[in-house]
């Protein structure tokens, strides 16, 4: 880590001004579980690290008509929260699948959404890749068994967040605090592909922070789940994951939200699968079709074609389980 200055903020006011416009000079630290890794590898060499944990209004879960989660809420609190487990199952499961017990006690939900990719070329100092202003994506022709099968080019990172697909499937909205005060941004608009912006995975401005995350109350008949496939079950990022939220009325799917994790540079909405399910009964045939549709436009690299089969199977598994839920 470079020798930075540490600032412990106790209020939001003035923070945007302090953050300024240079992302590499001032960085926000929540749980620090991702940030410290980047600092230690000197991928980030900021002048100042701003700890936001002391800002009270960023904490806490409120559950009323919908869910309102402070950005600094730690993942273990979300995973264990009874109401979240019951009504926002996909989120509790996603939060519970992250890292390990210790890191879930440290990592925050806001940090989880803003964490940087885990691509080993991005994280390794010796590889000056596209994301580090270099001239090539090492993964494209390198060892890419964990890389993107959707939306990759020109950089084949996958978004590592487990909470993001879940929150996206639940239709979450972010409350963002910036120089002009607060604004709301639907999570679906938050992430951006490398083709739109190579350097950053989301549209948060340098001088903004996420303050709260709001999730609308699920419609009656909604059921949800998160399936995460890890190569090493004890602790791993998702090789592929599925966040599925289905609203079922009568026997039919009224609304389907299926978002995939670990397969694209952003949480990847499986639109074609959603379309296959819309208005249908969850028959075996429909499920097979939806699962196939989920990966129909996959573009695997040399070493990750298995992720296509895997993802199809995970979608199928998710739908089968939701059917019998």
């Amino acid at each position: 880590m470079v020798n930075f200055e540490y600032f412990e903020a106790t209020s939001l006011e003035g923070l945007p001004q302090l953050l300024g416009n240079n992302r590499n000079e001032n960085v926000v630290m929540a749980g620090g579980t991702d940030l410290l890794d980047l600092l230690k590898e000197r991928i980030l060499q900021p002048k100042r690290v701003i700890n936001i944990k002391k800002i009270q209004e960023l904490h806490g879960i409120q559950n009323g008509r919908g869910l309102d989660i402070g950005a600094l809420t730690i993942l273990s609190d979300i995973a264990k929260h009874p109401a979240i487990r019951k009504s926002y199952t996909v989120l509790a499961q996603a939060a519970g699948s992250i890292a390990n017990a210790q890191l879930r006690n440290m990592g925050t939900i806001g940090g989880n959404l803003c964490q940087r990719p885990r691509c080993w070329y991005f994280r390794g100092r010796e590889y000056v890749c596209l994301k580090k202003d270099g001239s090539k994506c090492y993964a494209a022709e390198g060892i890419n068994k964990y890389h993107a099968i959707f939306g990759g080019s020109p950089c084949f990172i996958v978004h590592p967040s487990d909470s993001a697909p879940a929150l996206m499937a639940l239709g979450a909205t972010l409350e963002i605090y910036g120089p002009n005060g607060r604004r709301a941004m639907p999570l679906k608009d938050f992430f951006q592909l490398p083709e739109d912006n190579l350097m950053f995975e989301n549209r948060l401005a340098a001088n903004e922070i996420i303050t709260r995350i709001r999730i609308p109350e699920p419609e009656p008949g909604t059921r949800s789940l998160y399936i995460k496939f890890k190569e090493k079950d004890s602790m791993d990022f998702a090789i592929s994951s599925v966040a599925a939220v289905l609203q079922i009325q009568g026997n039919r799917v009224r609304k389907a939200d299926i978002v995939l994790g670990g397969v694209a540079p952003i949480p990847w909405r499986a639109k074609a699968a959603e379309a296959e399910l819309q208005g249908k009964e969850l028959s075996d045939a429909v499920i097979e079709k939806a699962a196939a549709a989920a990966v129909s436009d996959a573009e695997p690299l040399d070493h990750n074609a298995y992720k296509v089969m895997l993802t199809r199977n995970l979608v199928k598994d998710a739908l089968l389980r939701l059917r019998s839920a």
């Binding site: 200055e5 540490y6 903020a9 106790t10 006011e13 003035g14 001004q17 302090l18 002391k54």
Partner: peptide, 18 residues
């Protein structure tokens, strides 16, 4: 206002360096 002050003064908090 508190906010205007914060814009000039920076946010409330504490600095440690070195």
């Amino acid at each position: 206002s508190k906010e205007a002050a914060a814009r000039i003064l920076g946010p409330e908090g504490e600095t440690i360096s070195g």
